[in-house]
Amino acid sequence: MERYFFDVENGDGFMRDELGRELELNLEIANEIAKIVMDIAGDELNGSDNVRIQIFVRGENDRPIAVSLLTFTTHWAPQTP
Rank of each mutant, 00 (worst) to 15 (best):
A34W: 01
M15T: 15
P81H: 09
W76V: 11
A77H: 08
P64M: 11
E24D: 09
A30Y: 05
V57S: 02
R16A: 12
I33V: 15
A66E: 04
G11D: 11
H75T: 14
M38W: 04
R58S: 10
M15A: 15
P81V: 14
L27G: 08
D7P: 05
D7K: 03
L19E: 13
S48V: 11
D43C: 06
N26Y: 11
R21M: 13
A34K: 08
V8W: 00
T73V: 15
G42H: 05
I36K: 01
N10S: 15
R21N: 10
N31W: 00
V67C: 01
E18F: 08
E18A: 15
I29R: 01
G11F: 04
N61G: 08
L25M: 10
R21G: 00
F5P: 04
A66Q: 01
S48N: 14
T73M: 10
L25Y: 12
T71C: 07
E24F: 06
A30C: 05
V67F: 00
F72I: 10
P81M: 13
L27P: 02
L69V: 14
N61W: 07
K35Q: 08
E2Q: 13
I29S: 00
I65G: 02
D39R: 09
I65M: 04
V37F: 00
L19G: 02
L27A: 12
P81W: 08
E44Q: 14
F14H: 09
V67A: 02
G42W: 04
L45A: 06
Q54L: 03
R63F: 13
T74R: 09
I29D: 01
D12W: 05
L70H: 06
I53K: 03
D17W: 05
E22T: 12
F56E: 00
L19Y: 06
N10F: 02
G13S: 14
E9H: 08
Q79H: 11
D17M: 07
G20Y: 04
T71N: 13
R3T: 15
R21L: 13
A77S: 11
R16T: 09
R3S: 09
N10L: 03
S48T: 14
V8S: 01
T71E: 15
N26R: 06
M1Q: 06
R52P: 02
A66T: 01
D12G: 07
N50F: 11
G11E: 13
V37G: 00
N31I: 03
V8L: 13
N31Q: 13
Q79Y: 09
R63C: 08
A34N: 09
G59R: 05
E32V: 02
A30W: 01
K35C: 04
A34G: 05
R16L: 10
T71L: 08
E32A: 06
L23D: 07
V37R: 00
Y4C: 04
L19K: 11
L25Q: 11
G42I: 04
G11L: 10
V57Y: 02
M1G: 11
D62W: 07
R3K: 14
S68E: 02
M1Y: 07
D62F: 14
L27E: 14
G20Q: 08
V51R: 02
N26E: 11
A34P: 00
V51M: 01
F56N: 03
G47I: 12
E22R: 12
W76A: 10
H75K: 12
F14L: 13
E60A: 11
G13E: 07
F14Y: 15
R63I: 15
I29E: 01
I65F: 03
F56T: 05
L19C: 08
A41K: 05
N61A: 13
M15I: 15
R16V: 10
